[in-house]
């Protein structure tokens, strides 16, 4: 077992891990941050997406040891300081961008990562950016719409006749 220390959602945390301990297991099991989900074992579904040093990564495809010293943000750290939801989270609720909620944390992490570098993405850019995040419920319609709306774009005419 090796000790790792990292900053998770602004707090310094540490714990003993094995070499094979995945970052997602460290977050879910040791830190009890169960908002990060595991939906596959081939690194495709994106339910486990978190930010490591500001970059979008799949926490199921990174060892906890590799995040030693890193700054990690999970869905639990995405709200506003006062505990309310961020504009992006609120937009998902406003536009019904989630159903069962299982892929949702990954979607929020991926979308926020996109908006950081591309504040007003087009529909095509959003769809391309979500290539590594699978949702089985929404058909993506309202996810894409919610992200467009969160970036300040007018979505009232989407798919209108």
């Amino acid at each position: 077992m090796t000790k790792v220390t990292m900053t998770v959602n602004g707090k310094s945390v540490s714990g003993e891990v094995e070499g094979r301990t995945l970052l997602v297991d460290f977050l879910r099991d040791a830190q009890r941050l169960t908002g990060t989900h595991v939906g596959c074992d081939t690194s495709q579904c994106g339910a486990c997406t978190v930010h490591v040093d500001g970059l979008q990564v799949k926490s199921c495809t990174m060892f906890a040891l590799e995040a030693d010293g890193a700054t990690v943000t999970t869905i639990e750290g995405m709200g506003n300081a006062d505990g309310t939801m961020s504009a992006l989270q609120a937009s998902f609720q406003e536009h019904h961008g989630l159903q069962c909620g299982f892929c949702t944390p990954g979607m929020i992490m991926a979308a926020s990562s996109l908006l950081k570098v591309n504040p007003k993405p087009t529909e095509a850019e959003i769809r391309h950016h979500l290539e590594g995040n699978i949702c089985r419920c929404t058909g993506y319609h309202n996810i894409v719409k919610a992200i467009m709306a969160a970036s300040g774009q007018d979505v009232s005419a989407i798919a209108a006749e």
């Binding site: 997406t49 490591v52 970059l55 979008q56 990564v57 799949k58 590594g132």
Partner: peptide, 9 residues
């Protein structure tokens, strides 16, 4: 290549 998370790592 892959998707944004894959490209980060």
């Amino acid at each position: 290549i892959g998707d944004p998370a894959v490209r980060s790592r």
